[in-house]
Each structure stands twice: as structure tokens, then as C-alpha cells.
Design a protein around this nucleic acid. Sequence first.
DNA 1: TATTGGCTTTTTAAATTCAAAAATGCAATT
DNA 2: AATTGCATTTTTGAATTTAAAAAGCCAATA
Lengths: 306, 306
Amino acid sequence: MRSSQLAQNIANEITLLVTSGELAVGDPLRTQHLADRFGVSRSPVREALQMLSEQGVLEQKENRGFFVKESAGALAETVSDEARPFEVANDYQRLAEDWLTDRIPAEVTEQVLRERYDLTKMQLNDILMRAVREGWAERKQGYGWRFLPVAKTPEAFEQIYRFRMLIEPAAMLEPDFRLDRKIIEEQRRIQSRMLETDIERLPAERLLHNGALFHEELIKMSNNPFFHLSLVRVNRMRRLLEYRSRVDRSRLVRQCQDHLDILDLLERGEVIEASYAMRRHLGGALSKKSPITWSWSHQMQEKTLE
Amino acid sequence: MRSSQLAQNIANEITLLVTSGELAVGDPLRTQHLADRFGVSRSPVREALQMLSEQGVLEQKENRGFFVKESAGALAETVSDEARPFEVANDYQRLAEDWLTDRIPAEVTEQVLRERYDLTKMQLNDILMRAVREGWAERKQGYGWRFLPVAKTPEAFEQIYRFRMLIEPAAMLEPDFRLDRKIIEEQRRIQSRMLETDIERLPAERLLHNGALFHEELIKMSNNPFFHLSLVRVNRMRRLLEYRSRVDRSRLVRQCQDHLDILDLLERGEVIEASYAMRRHLGGALSKKSPITWSWSHQMQEKTLE
DNA sequence: TATTGGCTTTTTAAATTCAAAAATGCAATT
DNA sequence: AATTGCATTTTTGAATTTAAAAAGCCAATA
């Protein structure tokens, strides 16, 4: 029962819609709507829907389309681990890990990479394209690729935080800064739910994602896209370093509180206060991290979420 | 007399070494040395050297290698216009221009692009990879590519300057900031030479390049790579907007002066003063730009250099 | 009238072959 | 001992073909 990679990914994304509660039991799934949402045509969407109805997540009614069948709770168990959008991510992570730990040389030919990871030209291309986007790989002038030195040390985290401590509070003071109630409400909803939910039970990846999302959505309100883009980029770099770390859930509660406080200040129009609060929030994450011992060999690492 | 693209590029780069004065008449050119410098093997270097000796720029002595033959001055006339490293740049610029002026849709298939610009799969790939790196293109989930909204308006310049006004002065106050005499001297040399030379005669591209270089080299001294990377990236974006503009040379003298002043302050260890000076310098470029009328159709644009 | 479901067309990936180009090894020369 | 000049090997690009996958179309249906 092989099916296309894209359909797989879409199936996973649709599953996410159900588990996240955006879709309830009985809701219809419109193919065109989903296709637009994911930026694809209806073909892979249809395929995904068919897959999911075979798995019993959805129900297909003749000539009427697909409907949510299974409850979110029942699903939460079964998925979440394998269901990762974008399979490539795995190979990308392998490459990133190998580079971060000096298991591959700084300059390699494509052939070596293809053999090492058993990839087609195209697959390798996708991965390298991503590494280029993230800024740690480039094509050599002749044959081969060059990997650029990436901050792999604990200091890199500090540097990222200092950078963020500069731009995130400043973003709120930009002349074009405008409150966006929709963003604020959405983030409040997400953060509140994280507090209500048993944080221990949520997958680490989701925690990290929500944390980054909060900051990225907020910085958008500066209406200066260069602030936003910069944050997105350091966050991507951070993720590269983080995926091997252990989430320190004990600090999460405090951090969600901070987030909600900042949202409150913003909503009351106390932007300058919010800016200070943001600075303190980031500074807190920074100072608490210094005593941590790092060993980049094979141990898991402590880290904070913001 | 076709020769490989790479060899062409290298020939151009070598020519640059001669015209820039790094190599004088009679100096030998070591193949391995050049190969290492450009990150390629000796083959394309040899080919380039042979090309140049056919053109009379170099002289080949039996079993002893290549030597500079022509003087820098004599060369300066003949080259500089066609001799652009990286041919691809042209196609990239065409694509960028077309996107900036809405002549291509936000979502296109590779085939459409290949036909429009008459490119091979690989050439198109290179160009798109570059656009991905610069952050304004991404592969769609299914077939095709999506171009992301790029700030194409005058406001974009202001936004970039505000971002730079934040990070560049702050970079000097980073805890790991260290003066690097070598960088300072190098930049002083470059800026002084621009002042001494008749600025009207220097190619616009070089002026822009030197201006960006000054700021990028200085921010490096923060020893926080994320500051540097961010600046490099907004500068790249800026260049995308600038290549259609007209360089306002009248302001150049003042800007070089500013640069030299900042270097003086840094050298005397007055870092905080330098930080302020940098802020004023950037702020000046910003405020002077507002009265400019923009028309993104086909007219040339005014702009400043920093 | 919007949407589905099947069908057709278009687009891209994969595999293969061939030629060009780059990398590399080594004897000869300075 | 370092470097050239040439020969050999390796890597990559280009072109082609085939198959898979996605996009787009349209009649049927709720």
C-alpha cells in the first residue's frame, strides 16, 4: 500500500487538524479548501483523505465527501510519533547532526553524501537546499559542497539570546508597531492551553514549536519584516542545536506565565512595559542557563524553551 | 574557443588580483596557491592561466609557470565590464527584477521558468537555490515554486535602516566585542582610497560593495555571529532593491568621512562614542532619504550608499 | 450552486547514458 | 623541496526516456 509522499504528509497534517481540535467529529472536509490551505491541488488531498478513511479516522459518504469519524482523544495515542510532516526532515537532521559533531568533513562531494545517506540526486538536493536556506551549507565553485562553521557550543545559545534580547523588545517600540488582537487572542489561547494541559504529557517538539511561535507572532506586530525574518532565522538555527537536548519542563510553567503576562500588558496598551517584560523574560532564560554543563558527545542536554 | 564557465570566472578573479594591485608585474602565479584560495582544484586554475596568457595578461615560461605581464593600469580599461564572476548572477537578477515588478506570478512551475529564461534544469536550480538563500523563494509542497512577498517599496529601505540602526550600534556594546586592528586598518585603507580616488570614476558596484563591507566587517568584531549574519542578510536584500537605483555620489564623500571617523573612535578605544557615531551615521542616511520620489516602473532611483 | 469523483493533461522524479569538467596523482623540472 | 605539466580518475552536467505524481477539467450529484 504505497502512496505518494505528499499524500502522506497531507494525511499527517489533516490528522493534526483533528487532534488539535480544529475539526470535531462529524465535520466535513472539503477537498478544495484543504488543497488551498496546503498549497497543493486536490489530487494529493483526495489521496490523503482516502488513506485516512481506510485507517478509520475519517468516513467517506458516497458523493458527499469525507467527514471526521474518530475523536481527537482516540487519535492522540496512535499518531504523534511517526506522523511527521516532511519526511526529508529526518535525513536533514542526520546530516545536521553529523556536521555538528564533526563526523563529516567540511568539504564533500555529492557522491559521498549520496552514498552515505543512500539518497537520490533529488532527495540530496532537497536536503542541501534546506541547509543552504538555514545558512550552513554552500556549493563550492567547482565540484562539491562546503559546510560552514556553525556555532555548536553553549556560547551559541547565549549569543542567540543576546541577539533576541536586543531585537524582540525593540520590535515593540518600532514606529509601525500595531496591536493585532487576533494574534494576541490566538497566542493567549495556545499558551493557556499549555498551562491547563499536563505539560509533562505534551510532545517536546510541540512545546518548542509553541514557544518559538509566540515570539515570532509577536515580533510580526512590529510591521517591520526584517525583525521578524531575523528572529525566524535565529530560531531555526537554535532548533538545529536543540533537537538533541532535553526539554526542561520544570521551567515551562513559568515561561507560559511570562508569555501571558506580556500578552496582558500588550492588550492594555502598555507597550513599553511589555517591551521591558519581554527583555526580562529573555534575560531570565539566559541567566538560568549558564551553570549548565554541556558535553556535545552523546549526552542529552538541558535547555530552556525560550 | 569555448572554455569552461568555472575557468572563465577564475580568470576574471585573477584579473581582479592584478588590477587591484595585489599582484605586480613579474609576480609568479602558483597554481596550487590560487586553487586553494578559490576553493577549486588546479585544473580550472591552469585553464584560466592559459586563457590569460593567450590574452597577453600573463606570460608563461616553460616549466616555470605563469607570471604577470601586463600592468594594472593597462588592464583596467579592457576588463571590468564583462568580467563578472558568476555568470548566473545575470539570470538571477532577471528573475529578481521580474518578481519585484510583478511580471511573474507568485506561484509558477519549473517548466514555465525554464522556458521563460531558457535555462537547463541545473541552471534554474542554481538560481532558485540562491533565491531560497536570500529568503524570497520556496518550493511548494507539490509541484512548483512560490515566491514570497519581498518588500519592494521605499518603506523597505526605511525598515532595513531602522533594523540596522538597532543592531549595528548595539553590536559594539556586546560583551565579547574586541577591537581587531587588522580589520580596522584594512577598512581605513579601503575608505581612504575611495576618498583619494575620483569617486565619480569608480564603478557603482564597487562603491556599494565597499560600503556594505565596511559595516559587515565592523559588526564581526562583536564576536556574535548572529549579529553579523543578520546584517549580511538584510544587506543582500537591500542589494536586490538597489541594483536598479542610481548611486548618489554626492553623499559618498560624507559617508566615507563618517566611516573614517568611526574607525578613529574605535582605534582610540572610545567604543561607546563609536556606537553613537554609528547610530548617527545610519540615521543620517535614513532621514535624508525620505523626500525621494519612487517609481518602481522603469525609472532609475536615487539612493544612498549605506 | 458548490462540491465531489472520475478522467485527462501537465509536471516532475528517477534512472540511464554520454560527454564535459574538475580533481588528483606523479614524473620531470627548477 | 616545491612546483609544473601532463595523464588518469572521479565527479558532475546534460540529454533522454519512462513512470509516478500532481494539477486541472467537467459531468454528475447533493
